[in-house]
Amino acid sequence: MNNHQILTDEIVKLLQGGTAHASFQDAIDGLAPELRGERPYGLPYSIWQLVEHIRIAQWDMLEFSKDGNHQSPKWPDDYWPKEAAPKDNEAWDNSIKQIESDLEEFIRLLKSEDIYTKIPHGDGQTILREALQMADHTSYHISEIILIRRLLKAWK
Rank of each mutant, 00 (worst) to 15 (best):
E100I: 07
Q98L: 11
Y116C: 11
A20H: 13
N2A: 09
G122T: 10
T126N: 02
Q25S: 07
S101M: 14
G18S: 02
I54M: 10
D60H: 07
S23F: 11
I11A: 02
N89T: 15
Q133F: 12
E63L: 09
M61R: 05
R108Q: 14
D102Y: 04
A20N: 14
W92Y: 07
Q25A: 07
A84D: 13
E90R: 06
R129Y: 10
K97D: 15
F64C: 01
E63R: 12
S143C: 11
Y41D: 10
H4G: 14
D136S: 14
W75E: 06
G18I: 00
T138G: 03
V12K: 00
N89Y: 15
E113C: 15
A135M: 01
Q98R: 11
A85K: 03
K97Q: 14
D136Y: 14
K74Y: 08
S23N: 11
Y116L: 13
K153S: 13
H21Y: 12
K111G: 06
N69A: 15
V51K: 03
M134C: 13
W48M: 01
A131V: 05
M1K: 09
L110Q: 02
V51F: 06
P86T: 11
L128W: 04
E90D: 10
S72I: 00
E130V: 04
Q49H: 04
M61L: 12
S65W: 00
I142F: 04
G42Q: 04
L151K: 09
S112P: 13
T19V: 12
R149I: 01
E10K: 11
M1W: 08
I107W: 02
E83I: 05
H121K: 10
E144Q: 14
P81S: 10
R129M: 08
K118Q: 15
G42I: 13
Y41E: 14
S143E: 12
S46W: 00
W92T: 00
I145A: 00
D29S: 10
I146C: 02
N94K: 13
S23D: 04
N69R: 13
D77K: 11
P40I: 01
E34H: 09
G30K: 10
T8V: 14
I146L: 02
